[in-house]
Design a protein around this nucleic acid. Structure first.
Lengths: 195, 195
DNA sequence: GATATTTGTGAGTAATTAATCACTTACACA
DNA sequence: TGTGTAAGTGATTAATTACTCACAAATATC
């Protein structure tokens, strides 16, 4: 007991992600968080001013890690189609290890509860689609992808495809392997966007 | 006052759909429902045994109407690709008039709260994908769609594409026109599945 | 070693909300 | 017209839950 602030905040964020994955955002009460971390319920409020602030921190944490993993493939060398394929596979792998992510990002509870959280979620989505559009555009310049496609529109549909898959996975309680969906999803997607 | 049972139940269901669309599932309290309908809060429990039963009835109502609209295009005559195109457009049109649907179907609150509601939501999704697969299979037999595609897999990705779009629409608070997305989405999809 | 700051806690609060209950009013129908 | 049934209600309750506060213990700083 008596741990430094940052370490406890990290413990709390991890507890939130675990609990969200196991039982959904609804059950992530400050009491449940405290129990999981092993502290008293009021102690949670020593480290975060409000419950919303906890979720905001958790979303930030997830977004940071996700984009760290993805940016590698945005900036990397090599053919754009291959990099997009890998990016999708990496994303699905990342999320199957972070089941809390779909629970937080797709939770109506969060975005309709607090304008700040809604803004955070929307920001993550916008940034994700921007990254995709960049990669598509590059692929068009290197004759990987159909030149007549609108890159912004294509990126929205790719995002929809991936997110729709993840949502089904979350609604069906992670009952199938997300990672195994990577290659067939890519096959479906590739035949739509390749030259 | 003193309306017949069925009529009041219908009024309650419609109030639920309106409130869910406007403010999200969380705010659909029995008090809010009662206010919207114009009855006292305990009266709600005269017509539904529990709060969950209200949501179950609302999901049933939506599913019935949705599949009524869709089945026309499953059974209809004409080329399968054209019917799939229309089906997607009709679905997007239906949902833009029933904004409560994504809020209910994609609400973690519902499926993680009650096993019965989870089962109801999963049933709707399974049925939807089954319908799509049927149409795909028919399109393969009439040489509309790629014969080497797995129809079940394709139907899952089509569903993911549509549902991902709807989810983004819901998360971004219906700020863009869902119906206008029908044709570009179809263009994206068609280039992936056509022979 | 004194002191100030941070971390932790038990007890409590105010607000929300699904559900109950005793009772009343409206209505069908014999 | 009387009587049973269904619809409606005000008052209440029990449970949940984010958050506060006075105080204790640990830790850092000098």
């Amino acid at each position: 007991m008596g741990k430094p602030r940052e370490q406890r905040q990290q413990e709390i964020i991890e507890a939130v992600l675990e609990l969200a994955a196991e039982q959904g955002v609804q059950r992530v009460t400050t009491q449940a968080i405290a129990d999981r971390v092993g502290i008293a319920q009021p102690t949670v409020f020593r480290h975060f001013k409000t419950r919303d602030a906890i979720f905001a921190a958790a979303i930030d944490f997830l977004a940071m890690n996700l984009f760290n993993a993805l940016e590698t493939f945005i900036v990397a060398k090599g053919p754009a189609d291959e990099r997009l394929r890998q990016l999708i596979n990496v994303q699905l792998g990342f999320i199957s290890r972070q089941k809390g992510l779909p629970r937080l990002l797709f939770s109506d509870r969060l975005h309709l509860e607090s304008p700040a959280l809604k803004a955070a979620v929307q920001k993550v989505m916008r940034r994700y689609m921007k990254q995709l559009a960049k990669l598509i555009r590059e692929g068009q310049e290197t004759a990987c992808f159909r030149p007549e496609m609108d890159p912004d529109q294509a990126s929205r549909y790719i995002a929809a495809l991936v997110q729709g898959l993840i949502m089904r996975w979350s609604i069906f309680d992670f009952e199938f392997s997300l990672e195994e969906e990577g290659e067939p999803l890519w096959a479906f997607l590739y035949s739509s966007i390749r030259v």
